[in-house]
């Protein structure tokens, strides 16, 4: 464990807590894409299949449980909670996210480190996570008024993978044989997808005005 990875995990944790806080306290998921939340639930479900078979540390297992629990409960809130589900703007959240799942699965079947069931699904979860934010970014462009919590959620979610990139650089420099091109490229693509969001987020923060993404 290094400071970059810890910062990344804490930023990721903060992002899901911000979202859960928003949904649980104000009972609203306005501006949040259910498609992205469903994709993230699939990402964690396929990423952490080894939660029962391999144990690394209490921290590792605890964080996996938190990410699994939070992503599935957010999906549950947005789909089934009587108050929250009414605030979900179904008409705007129309990204065909299943069109993201299949290519990622095919790619994982083609490009992976080892051709085993767990490894292919784990690689699939990496590819899917890289694009999981797309429905949310599309939704943000459509809903003009981005409330602070949703903006913070996306910002933290984008930032965590940025910290992971620093972690990979650090581990590459300090650990022999630590080379994982698939993880690195997927993580880089993921972070780059946030580039324009980050730009407009900083602009709104610097000029102290509402976050508005260009249509």
């Amino acid at each position: 464990m290094n400071i970059f990875r810890l910062a990344g995990d804490m930023t990721h944790l903060a992002s899901v807590l911000v979202l859960l806080l928003k949904i649980h306290t104000i009972k609203s998921c306005a501006g949040v894409s259910l498609k992205t939340q469903e994709l993230y639930a699939i990402v964690f479900a396929t990423r952490y299949l080894d939660i029962f078979t391999s144990f690394y540390s209490i921290y590792n297992t605890l964080m996996k449980l938190i990410f699994l629990g939070s992503s599935f409960s957010i999906v549950w809130y947005m789909r089934y909670h009587k108050t929250v589900r009414r605030t979900y703007d179904r008409e705007q959240d129309t990204f065909r996210h299943w069109f993201l799942v299949l290519p990622c699965l095919l790619l994982a079947l083609l490009i992976h480190e080892k051709f085993t069931f767990l490894e292919v699904l784990w690689t699939f979860s990496l590819y899917l996570e890289a694009v999981a934010i797309l429905p949310q970014l599309v939704l943000l462009q459509r809903t003009r008024n981005i409330d602070n919590l949703t903006g913070q959620y996306v910002f933290l979610l984008g930032g965590y993978r940025g910290f992971y990139i620093l972690n990979w650089i650090y581990r590459y420099l300090t650990e022999p044989h630590f080379v994982h091109w698939i993880t690195w490229i997927a993580g880089l693509v993921q972070t780059l997808l946030y580039a324009d969001f980050f730009y407009y987020y900083f602009q709104s923060w610097k000029n102290n005005k509402k976050l508005q993404l260009p249509a």
Binding site: S54, K64, K114, T183
Partner: peptide, 10 residues
Amino acid sequence: RPSAINKDEL
């Protein structure tokens, strides 16, 4: 198995 090392990440 080098890939196992990577699995200690979330």
